[in-house]
């Protein structure tokens, strides 16, 4: 995979983390549970991205 793709993954993961964190903290259930899931997916995606690209 090219560096550009890793960069997209890292940035996409961060966006997921931002959305997931705010949903998890601010929304009521069951939306907050969806936020939990998005937060965890964001962590996984950004770990993958930052393993191949770092600013």
């Amino acid at each position: 995979m090219s560096t550009v793709n890793y960069k997209y993954l890292a940035n996409t993961g961060m966006v997921f983390m931002a959305v997931g964190s705010l949903m998890a903290c601010l929304a009521q259930q069951p939306i907050s549970l969806i936020g939990d899931g998005i937060l965890i997916i964001g962590l996984i995606i950004s770990t993958w991205g930052f393993s191949g690209w770092r600013p």
Partner: peptide
């Protein structure tokens, strides 16, 4: 750190 810092800031 690159993965953790945004997560901590957003939470």
């Amino acid at each position: 750190s690159f993965v953790s810092i945004p997560a901590m800031v957003f939470i």
